[in-house]
Structures are given as C-alpha cells and as structure tokens.
Design a protein around this nucleic acid. Sequence first.
DNA 1: ACAAATGCTGCGGGTTCCCGCAATTTCGAC
DNA 2: GTCGAAATTGCGGGAACCCGCAGCATTTGT
Lengths: 253, 253
Amino acid sequence: MKILVVEDDQFHASFLQGVIAEALPEVTETLHVQDGLQGEAAARAGRFEAVVMDLQMARRNGIEAARTIWHERPRTRILFWSNYSDEAYLRGVADIVPAHSAYGYVLKTASRERLKLVLRAVLLEGQVMMDREIQRLRRRNASPRHSLSQSEYAVLLDLALGLQDRLIAERQGLSLRTVQNRLLTLYDKLGVNGEEQALPGLNKRVRALSRAISTRTLNLEMLETAQHDLECWLAARPADEKAPPTQRGDGAL
Amino acid sequence: MKILVVEDDQFHASFLQGVIAEALPEVTETLHVQDGLQGEAAARAGRFEAVVMDLQMARRNGIEAARTIWHERPRTRILFWSNYSDEAYLRGVADIVPAHSAYGYVLKTASRERLKLVLRAVLLEGQVMMDREIQRLRRRNASPRHSLSQSEYAVLLDLALGLQDRLIAERQGLSLRTVQNRLLTLYDKLGVNGEEQALPGLNKRVRALSRAISTRTLNLEMLETAQHDLECWLAARPADEKAPPTQRGDGAL
DNA sequence: ACAAATGCTGCGGGTTCCCGCAATTTCGAC
DNA sequence: GTCGAAATTGCGGGAACCCGCAGCATTTGT
C-alpha cells in the first residue's frame, strides 16, 4: 500500500509519518510533498490510492488539490487533516467529494490514538469518518436557523468579493429584487439584524462580511478561490454586457 | 536564566524547547503554557524576563498577552514566533512595544540555525531583531504609496467592523466629510479604484474590506480585537448620543 | 515672511442600498 | 385538482454612500 502525505509544516509532517508507520504497517511506501500543486502531480504520477491532505497550504490549498485528484481518480481515499474547523472548509470539502468516495476529516488537535484509528478506518477500510468537533458543527448547520443554503452561500461569496447587487443578479441569473431578498435572509442568518437593533449605525453589507469571517463561515482560502472563479467568469462573459449605455466610439466625433 | 514559552501547538513547542536547550545553555528553567491567558498569569507569577510567544492562539492571542506582560514589566524580552507575516500582526506588535524594549519577530519557517541565533540575540543580549521577510515587508510599508497611516488604519478597522460613516466620525472625533476622505485614500491605497475602472460594478466599501483581508492588511485576530475594543467604547459612550433627534417622550405630543 | 502643500470641513448631486407592499410564480401536500 | 406556503419579481421611497468643488487651518520649505 502506498500513501501520499501533502503537508507544508515539517513538524506536523514528521509526526504524521511516525503515526502512519505505527498505525499502518501494511504501508510499503510513503511520499511527502509540501503543497497542493506538488500533491496533484505526485498523485497523478504515483497513482496513490490513499492521501493525507493538509488544507491550508501555500501555493494551492488542500481543497483544490483534492478536487483535481478526485476528478482524475474518484476512488482515491483522502483524509483531510487540518488545524481548523471552519465552516468554509467543511462546505468546500462537501462540495467536491464524489459519491461513494471514502474520506475523513480530523483536526490536528486530535490525540495520537484517535488519529491512528481514523487513518485505519478511512485509508485502509474505506469508511467515511469525521472528528467529533466536525460532526457537531455539521449538525448545528443542519438546523435551518443559521445554516446557509447553497444559493445563499453563493450570494454571500459574491457579496464578499465586493460585487454590487446588479452584478450579483447577473452572475446568479436572478432579478435584482431577488438578490436583495437573499441579502436580507443573509443579514438575518448572520445575525446582523439582531445587532442592528442594539446599535443602529451599521452598514449591513460590510457587517455581514465581517461576521461571516469572524464566525468562520468564510475564510481567506475560500475568498481567494471565489476571487479566482470571479475572474474566470469575467473573462468568459461577453463584453457587451459590461456597458449597456454604449456612449461613444462608434463612428462620429 | 528562566524562560517562558507560550505556544499552543505541541509539536512546535517541543521543537522549540529542543532548540532552546541547544542554543541557550544558561537557561535553568523553562515553563511551557498553551495560550495567552496562561502566559500572562505565568509571567506575572514567575517573573520571567525572557518569553517566546506564538501569535495565533485560542483564548488570547500573543499580541494582547504581550501587551499586558509589557504593561506590568516593560523590560521583559519577548520573541514573537509566528507562522504568518501578516501586516496586521506587524502593526499590532509595533503598536505595543515599549521604548527601549528588546524584542524580535521570527517566522516558523526559519531554519533551526537562524532561530538559535535570534534566540541568543534577543533573549540573552537584549537586541531587536527581525526575520528577513519581516524586514522586507516593513520596508515596503515605509513607502507611503501603499502604506496606511495610523489614523487610516483606525478608520479601516471601523469600516471592517461595519460602522457607517457617521459612527466612524463620532468614534474618531472627525467630521463626516473627513471620514469620507479617509475612505477615499483607503480605496486608493488598497487598490479598489484601480479595479473599479476595469470592472465598474463594485461596492467599494465591501471591496476595501475584502482586499484588506486578502492582502493580509487585516486578519481575523485583529478583527476580533477591534470588535472587542468597539464593545468597550460602546459601553463607555453616553447613551444620549445614540439618538440625536429625540422624537417623543418629553411631555406634550 | 511668504508661498506652497497638506489636512479638515461643509454643500450638493447622482448613485446605490435597504426594505415595505403587493402581484405573480413555483412547488409540495392532501 | 386544489390549496397554501414559500420563492420570485416590480415599484417606490427614504437613507446611506461616493465624490467634485470650494473655503479654512495648519504645516513646511525657502
């Protein structure tokens, strides 16, 4: 059995390799790379079927790397091993995991014993397993009180990038008013309206982004991914939509 | 010589203790605690004069802990040891370091040899020392093209918290128009105006926050600290400023 | 000492945002 | 097939925001 470790912190990596050697004696070869890009290349070249992946890495983060790996070989078993239990990461992982794939999510604060257990369960036996903390967060989000639907989350991303209503509407294929309704429910679910009545001087738009970040609904990685997506979308968008009132340049003057 | 280590990642902490034992044989006692609160208490009780401090920790971050430590014993020598070179951290550290205090800033990616060197220089000889990368960032910010002045940064924090112009003005003791001027220069320095002319559909206010975060001018820790400061300021603010147009309740109607 | 530069402020207008009201559509349930 | 809840859209108004213009105050350079 071959295993690929994608982790940019050398201390964590060496600790992890020790635990792997201890928990999975059937491993014959482990390769350690430092970031997502190298991880993609290594997975492609080495045909690994078991991967341990950090999420926050320099050149390409773990979610994007996992997406391309799963895109090429959907049966790869991936264990995400991260410092943080941000909702943004959970959502990112949930968005890309293929049906029937084995994966897991463990926090770096987990005990050595727990890590060994999860390593065997996910990488060897192909189960789906999550840290206790992760499960708890996931259940909390299942209640529709505070959880964001897929489309609400998309609007939140656009808001976070600084698009104004009209552009969000165009990008999501909705009417202006609907976007504003979505924003209303966002303000509600993020708790902006609750604060507003205690302190009536808030800019709800900014406050929503601020709260999304401090509650870890959004994080830096997801923001950068969204920014990249936006640039792709802009490049693909026909140019004539940019300026409906074509003012000058056609012939005269 | 006694030394205090404040670090919540156990792997990093044990690595650090190894390096300390190697680099500073004159150390007679090292105490390791897991977060800022414990760090403050330990520094108070143990009268340490040398501290190695992580920045990103669970209960209280390194900057706040360092502030109270320095407030109680300004001659304490503190070496900050962090994963990130965010401008927000640099600014936070620069804001609290007392005059004539010895301190340093090293990245966790620094080599073992470099860490040993800085440990001796700062904690033993009382010099001021920074990582190469940190120096570079600091020089870049010295050029007034992109760097934010103290007051501009304060306005950026208020903006990031979601205050609207009027409240920012009140909080900073400025007129409304001046706040808006500050915002203009902020938009400029954060590059919002540059993007605006390429893509004319941006909400500058949100975009400014978005860029401040993705360029690491702001980060989650500083946002939370600012939020806390805001709540303190709100509590201290006289209540009658909240509603200038007193509409009802005074006798007749 | 004078001029230039920089920072702070008020005014006014054009735009965007927030959101209540109401009409219409969609969708699941019975 | 019908009913009711939820989602989607249009309209309109008041508030907040962006920003050019112009008048003072302070600071700086010569």
